[in-house]
Design a protein around this nucleic acid. Structure first.
Lengths: 212, 212
DNA sequence: ATGTAATATTTTGTATGCAGAATTCATAGT
DNA sequence: ACTATGAATTCTGCATACAAAATATTACAT
């Protein structure tokens, strides 16, 4: 068994993202470093390192002398983030290995179909959606691009817990996933790319109304 | 006079980027935190904070127990970065305010022309090029996108000092800038976008041969 | 001479300490 | 009662101290 050796700052970052998705912190609230460090059972140093990382990803803001706080949410920013991820994922799909795409297309289709069937809890649906997109882009050799997508998506997770548990809109996402997979099966890469763009545009429209 | 109050980590980050562009550090070399902190006249704490930020931008790598080091360069990564910035700038241009674009188009054209005239030092040319692109995207309201572009470009600066002082290829870039500006003058946004993409593709091809 | 084990040194990762800025609270004056 | 002013408190930003991991060095056996 290879024991795990990771810097505290990374574990802290993960834990904070987890809490953020659970909706533990309201957007716009200040972070008290000493208190949070105490809760997590670590010192302020690695905590601050994690906070700086999150600030770099847009999850937090930092003001001189005033420390860190969770970046406020807005429809404008959500729109911006969706546009960015759409462009990045489109690029990732375009620059993917065609052979690999052919290979995973059936699996993508299967997942999209079984996804539309079950109507589960929001968090599970989101998890499923994330995995689907990961699989879709698994043939992209541009590692920097994949890292960037992950990072921008981290910034979007501030919004996920705002969308409460209504299951209906998620089934439409499954349809869009199905369409993307079908285009790939037909070797229609450009069709798949524009279907992916549609998926992000529609996903945005579906969610944006719920943002305060 | 409003006195400046900025965190040390930001000033340190700037200084390190400056040194990086000057070619002070070779790619792949380890960073000794104590030594570097001593040189900069600061403690290890804000230095580490700056290093973590730079690692988030892809300028540095960090391995557990082994600290930070300048990320090695490769043609593959450079290609990847160019593709990413091309896509992001294209998106930024597409989502710019058309009225603003009409307004700055003449200035962009003027700058591109006077740029092709003077053959200056590489660093100045790059500076000019950066400013031109900044002006081009100044009408983009997507702030997150502009930040992201800045961040990815920071990662690319590892490569700039590798391209030595040959002036010839830069004049071709000016031609491309001229073409982008002309499209904007004609209100041909899509034409400008694809000219911008060409600019990045060609710029990449021009530079890539010089990477070891 | 070479490889290996034990030890010393260096260097990172984390915790703690301290100075100063920001905020809060109390008090005085109107 | 309300605002303004100043003291007290809280909290951040930076420096320093400490522990553990990694690296270098030495001693020893073959």
């Amino acid at each position: 068994m290879a024991i795990e050796r990771r810097p505290l700052r990374e574990q802290i970052r993960e834990e904070l993202m987890l809490r953020l998705e659970r909706g533990d912190f309201a957007a716009g609230t200040d972070i008290n470093e000493a208190v949070l460090a105490g809760e997590l059972g670590v010192s302020r140093t690695p905590l601050r390192e994690a906070l700086i990382t999150l600030a770099g990803e847009g999850v937090l803001e930092s003001n001189q002398g005033r420390g860190f706080r969770f970046a406020p949410v807005s429809r404008k920013e959500f729109r911006e983030l969706c546009a960015i991820v759409a462009a990045l994922e489109a690029l990732a799909l375009e620059s993917s290995d065609p052979a690999h795409l052919r290979e995973v297309a059936p699996e993508l289709l299967r997942l999209a179909r079984e996804f539309s069937a079950d109507v589960a809890a929001r968090q599970e649906i989101e998890h499923h959606d994330d995995e689907w997109h990961d699989l879709l882009l698994s043939g992209c050799g541009n590692e920097r691009l994949l890292d960037l997508i992950t990072s921008v998506k981290a910034g979007m997770r501030r919004y996920t817990h705002l969308m409460s548990g209504d299951g209906t809109p998620m089934t439409r996402a499954a349809e869009e996933h199905r369409r993307i997979a079908e285009r790939l099966l037909e070797d229609d890469l450009q069709g798949a790319v524009s279907a992916l763009r549609d998926n992000w545009v529609n996903g945005m429209e579906r969610m944006i109304a719920r943002i305060p």
